[in-house]
Design a protein around this nucleic acid. Sequence first.
RNA 1: CGGAGUGUAGCGCAGUCUGGUAGCGCACCUGGUUUGGGACCAGGGGGUCGAAGGUUCGAGUCCUUUCACUCCGACCA
Length: 575
Amino acid sequence: MKFSEAFIFTSKDVPSEATLPSHIYLLKGGFIQSVGAGLYNFLPLGKKVLDKVHAVVKEELDTAACQEVELAFVTPSEFWIESGRFEKYGKELLRFKDRKDAEFVLGPTHEEMMVNLVRSYVKSYKQLPINLYQIKTKFRDEIRPRFGLMRGREFLMKDGYSFHKDEESMIKDGFNKMEETYSNIFKRLGLDFRVVEADSGAIGGSGSKEFMVLADSGEDTIVVCEECEYGANIEAAVRANPKAPHEVNSEYERPEMNFGKFLTPNVKTIDELAEFFKIEPYYTLKVVAKKALYDDGVEKIALFGIRGSDELQEVKACNAVNANELIDISDEELQEAGLTPGFMGPKDLPEDILFVADNQLKGEISTIAGANEVDYHYVGLNLVELGLEYKDLVAVKEGDKCARCENGKLKYTKGIEVGHIFQLGDRYSAPMKAEFLDENGKSKPFLMGTYGIGISRLLAAIIEQNHDDRGPIWTKESTPFDLEIIVSNIKKEEELSLGERLYKELSKDFDVLLDDRKERFGFKISDFELLGIPYAIIVGKKVKDGLVEIVNRKTLEKEEVSIDEVASKVRGYLV
RNA sequence: CGGAGUGUAGCGCAGUCUGGUAGCGCACCUGGUUUGGGACCAGGGGGUCGAAGGUUCGAGUCCUUUCACUCCGACCA
C-alpha cells in the first residue's frame, strides 16, 4: 500500500475524553473512529489489525478441530424465553420488534442460538463431541461503555460452544482443550497473560477460567501467588485458612470469655467491639447486610457473617444467596425489618432474613457477635449449635497465604479480561430440551462448554501492554503492516526510485506500507511511530553513499545497512 | 442508575460571568520557498454556536424544556 493513496488519517490532537494509551493511540493513529457511546467505526488500519487477530484465532481453533459457523445477529426472543434469560439478562439485552410485532433481541452472546442449532441436527452420542464457533459482532447495551475498544457496546467477539456426552468429555475434550488452545492464541499474539480462576457470573455453570492480560490499566483485580502458579479473579479467589492470632504469636491468648448476652452500650463497630473487650477482631463476628434482588421483583434482606478481621467479597456473597444482584441497604430499612444495625448477629434473628456464614467460621465455638438487640452482644457464642449455612464469602487480601501451595503470599495485580472459558453443563440444554441418545438409548441433555475471546478488546489489550510515549508497538502477528518504507524526500529521484524498487521487491513476501507522501522527514517518522509498525526502512540522505537505515520501532534504534543487503537483512527480522 | 461536567468549523479550544451580529491553533485548498525529527510566507474555503421554546430593539451569551456525549462509582468479552 502506498501511503499517498491510503485512507489513513493520523492526528496530533485527540479528543480529551480518551485517557488510556490504547484509546488515545487507536484514535490518533486513525485505527478507529468514535461514532457514539461505545460504538466505533474501524478504519482500514484498525480493520487490518482486527483481521490479523481474527486469522490467528481462526487458525488455532481450526487446528483444535473447532468449526466456524455464522449465526444470525438478530435472534428471535423465543429462544431466550426458553432458556429463561429473556427476563434475567436485564437491560443489557437490546430488545425490539419488527413490523409484524414479533420480538427480537440483538445477540449479546449466542448460547441459545447454538443450542437450537445443534439440537435440531445432533441426535446421537456417536456424533459427539462437537465444537462450533463464530467470530461476530455482539451487542450489549452496557450501562457505561468506556475506554474505547476496552468496553464498547458493539464489539467483535469469538464465541465457541462445545457439546459432549458426559462430564469427562466436557472437561477433557472441551474445557481443557480450549484452555490450551486459548493459551496458544494469546502466546502467538505476543501477550503476557495469566489464566485465572473466575466467577461464572450471569452465564451460569460451574468451572470457569479467565485469560487476563496483565496491565495496570486493567479493570479486573486478580490475585496471584508469589510462589506457585495460582491465579484467580478477586471475585473467585480463595486463600489458606488464616491462623488465629494466638496460633501465630504467643503474646496473644485465645479469649475464653463466656458471658452469654452481655451489655455493650453503644459499641457498634468491630473496632469498638475489639477495643471494648481488648481482643483481636479475629475473635469477633462481623455482619454485613445487603438487599438481595431476585426475579419478578422479589427482595430479601441477606446478612453475611464473617470474621471481624475479614472483608466481604460481594460477588461471592451474591452467589451464596443465589441472588441476581446485591444492593446496599439503609439502616432504616433494617430497622423496619426488626434488625438492629450495629448489633446484628446469627442468633435470634427475625423471620425472613437470610443468613450465611463464611466457611472459615465453620467449627467456631466461641466468638462475639451481635445479639440482635440494641446495646447487646453474645460473648462466647458457639456457632456450631446454631446450624448455620456456610459458604465462601471473604475477599482475599494481599499478604494472605495461598490455598494451593500453602506457602506463598498472595498479591494483587491488574488484568484485562480477553478470554473466558466455562463448563456449562446442562444449564442451557436442559431447559431448551436439547437432548441426544446415549449408548443405552436413553435421552440426555448435552453437556456443554462455552468459550469467548474479545477480539476487538484484544486490540486495546495489545496496545496497553505494548506501547511507549510515541504510540503503539504492534506485535508480529497483530501489526497492520509488516514493514514501512519511508522515502525521506520524494523530490530526490534516487530516493523515490529506490524506495519504490524495495517496495516492489519486499511486497512479494510482506505487507509493506510505502510512505511516498510529499511531507518532510520528521512528519513521516512520527507517523511511523504512531502507526506502530515493527520495522521501517528509511531511504534518505545516505542513498548516495549506498546506504539506507532500518529502524526498530520497539527500541527506536537505527541501523545503517548497504542498499544491496537491506532486503535480505529485513527478511531476517520479519520471518 | 447516582454524582460531576461538556456541547461553538473535521479535531483541540477561547468567547458565555458583564447580551451588540463569531474567533484562535491544527487540519484542508492555491501559489511559492523549504526537505533527516511533526517547516515557513502569502492568499483562501468552511460554523442556522446540540435542539426546541421564551425574555429582549437585539441572544453563542439570560430563562425554561429537551437531547447527546464524557468523566467518577455499582455490571461484563
